[in-house]
């Protein structure tokens, strides 16, 4: 709703890229980077997983669910909803596949 005043230049939020790119299996154990961007830890977790997926189709909901065992399906959906509203992610081949905007 808020009209943005152009010309301010891009003070974009510095998205911290965690240095643990090789560590794919792990669950987020809280920590500092779970609180970046003003997202909830759940939202961050979802975003992080989507970011880590480099396929052209992004990450499917089923895969997210599988990787986020213990997280409520509705919570995941809400996180996806929020993230796509914010523009962090977008749906690709269908509404169940998401890709991160700052991936490439």
């Amino acid at each position: 709703n808020a009209q943005s005043t152009p010309g301010g230049g891009g003070t974009s939020v510095a998205l911290s890229t965690p240095a643990r790119a090789g560590n794919t299996g792990g669950s987020f154990t809280g920590g500092v980077d779970a609180q970046t961007n003003g997202l909830t830890p759940h939202q961050n977790q979802v975003l992080f997983l989507i970011k880590s997926c480099k396929g052209s189709e992004g990450m499917g909901f089923e895969e997210l669910k599988a990787r986020l065992q213990g997280m409520n399906v509705n919570t995941i959906k809400q996180a996806l909803d929020f993230l796509s509203n914010e523009g962090h992610i977008y749906s690709t081949v269908d509404d169940d596949h998401y890709k991160s905007t700052d991936g490439d």
Binding site: S4, T5, P6, G8, G10, T11, S12, V13, S84, N85, E86, G87, H88, I89, Y90, S91, T92, V93, K99, T101, D102
Partner: peptide, 20 residues
């Protein structure tokens, strides 16, 4: 594929609008 590009463009715009 066109849909993907469109979604991506829309998402990037949203993102930009959030972080002015």
């Amino acid at each position: 594929l066109e849909r993907i590009q469109r979604n991506k463009a829309a998402a990037l715009q949203k993102l930009a609008a959030r972080h002015v």
